[in-house]
């Protein structure tokens, strides 16, 4: 296994879109091992995306079992070709990124998400995530679309009161 080099902004490659994974082979699994080791070598990172190490495929790892304060989590997740299929609620939180050293900012993310993805063996998986883990998954998936948290910054000030779930009014409920 190896620790891979992390690209840091303003490296333009971080802004490029990544392609789906088609081969679920040993090479992919070896890469996932390297990617995980790279994440673990970073300072407190709870996630990493393949484009952060210069591999432009739709692969992320999220592991929210390592937070200072325990949060609900699914352990270490190898997530390939992810699709967020449902969003609920909005919440503001502070984010930083191994690819953007020495800067953190507030970003609005969905409070809860449903995710479908392939695991390391190409098997289709589904999970529902909330809170910190949902935030981490959204942050990492953004990398696959060439988006950094810098693209989603909201005011560091004027974020007046804690934002919890906004309940849609009956008129705003999706028609079924």
């Amino acid at each position: 296994m190896a620790i891979l080099e992390i690209l840091t902004y303003p490296d333009a490659r971080l802004k490029q879109e990544s392609l789906p994974v088609e081969q679920f082979d040993d090479e992919l699994r070896a890469f996932l091992a390297d990617l995980e080791q790279t994440m673990l070598a970073g300072p407190g990172g709870v996630g990493i995306a393949a484009p952060q190490v210069g591999r432009f495929r739709r692969i992320v790892i999220v592991d929210c079992s390592r937070t200072r304060k325990p949060v609900p989590n699914h352990g270490r997740l190898f997530i390939v070709n992810p699709e967020i299929t449902a969003w609920e609620g909005m919440t503001s939180g502070r984010e930083g990124c191994m690819s953007v050293p020495d800067y953190t900012g507030n970003v609005i993310r969905a409070e809860k998400i449903s995710l479908s993805y392939h695991d390391a063996h190409g098997k289709l998986q589904q999970l529902d995530a909330e809170g910190y883990e949902a935030r981490a998954i959204q942050h990492e998936i953004d990398h696959l679309d060439g988006l950094l948290f810098l693209d989603r910054l909201v005011s560091r000030r004027n974020d007046l009161f804690r934002r919890k779930v906004y309940q849609p009014t009956p008129e705003q409920q999706p028609k079924t």
Partner: peptide, 8 residues
């Protein structure tokens, strides 16, 4: 509220 900065 604690600020739990997410590094990803």
């Amino acid at each position: 509220e604690p600020i739990e900065t997410l590094i990803g």
